[in-house]
Design a protein around this nucleic acid. Structure first.
Length: 260
DNA sequence: CGGCGTGTTCAGAA
DNA sequence: CTTCTGAACACGCC
């Protein structure tokens, strides 16, 4: 699931169900998601404290409390799910934050990323490796960081140290909307093209953030990419699939020609 | 059994 | 120095 819009959705879950609540327990069902912190320390540092307003940067969820900070990264399959003590545990509920009312579950099938406990210095260290948030970055900064870049445009969009928040689905979606081939060298895109790319990125992000996930709409590339015989929602041409920047990539050979 | 995936990181190569 | 590739992590579904 998790790209920027999904993590923004998890942030809202935390606002609705965690903010202002006191942590009364931390149940660690699988310590495999704990990064650099033991179950015992996670529990002892958090119990008794309250979640305050959470933040998000790129795909990182910054769950502040009145004492330490919980940093969550959801990898490819993670989610933050609200629950109650009546809800049966899901087999992939790796950590449950029990609150004075309800609970919050870190659910994750693949355990590719996980949970860290941090002080403000550690938060800074983690975020230092991240570029500006894709939803907050300005047009000028976007164009400038890309114009200094070589290599393929899709690789650049996926590079979290350049722009933080886009994942594989959103990168394909943005490029499709902007009519740019995913393997196009960044250097071949002129200023007008980069500006257009920025505009389309904002469209895709805003529409996705509104619904709290990357939508599988029929009018979007995401709605077609898992069909057995995918066609371009815009022109009806059969879509191409291949590997770009080491990731499965879908594009329309007609809307996104190699040269533009 | 082999391949793949909405992610990140590392080593080694170009 | 930058960028790319493949492997690794871990799990479930073809």
């Amino acid at each position: 699931m998790p790209e920027l819009p999904d993590v923004e959705g998890f942030r809202r879950v935390l606002v609705a169900h965690g903010q202002g609540r006191r942590i009364t327990g931390v149940k660690v069902a699988d310590a495999g998601v704990l990064r650099g912190v033991s179950a015992r320390r996670l529990r002892s540092e958090l119990v008794g404290h309250r979640f305050v307003a959470p933040e998000r940067h790129g795909k990182w969820l910054i769950a502040r409390t009145d004492a330490p900070v919980v940093l969550l990264h959801f990898g490819m399959t993670g989610a933050l799910v609200p629950g109650t003590s009546d809800d049966p545990p899901h087999p992939h509920d790796r950590v449950v934050f029990i609150l004075d009312e309800g609970d919050l579950r870190f659910r994750d099938q693949r355990k590719l990323q996980g949970i860290r406990l941090a002080d403000e210095a550690e938060v800074k260290r983690v975020l230092a490796g991240q570029g500006p948030d894709a939803l907050a970055v300005g047009r000028e900064e976007f164009e400038q960081s890309l114009s200094r870049r070589r290599g393929r445009i899709k690789a650049a969009l996926l590079d979290q140290s350049l722009i933080a928040g886009l994942g594989n689905l959103l990168a394909d979606e943005v490029l499709w909307r902007a009519r740019v081939h995913p393997a196009c060298p960044v250097g071949e895109l002129d200023g007008a093209r980069l500006r257009w790319l920025y505009t389309q990125m904002r469209h895709v992000l805003q529409a996705s953030v509104r619904v709290g996930c990357v939508p599988g709409r029929p009018s979007w590339l995401t709605g077609e990419r898992y069909e057995e015989d995918p066609h371009c929602p815009r022109c009806g041409n059969p879509l191409c699939t291949g590997r770009v920047a080491g990731r499965g990539t879908v594009w329309c050979p007609r809307c996104q020609p190699r040269r533009s």
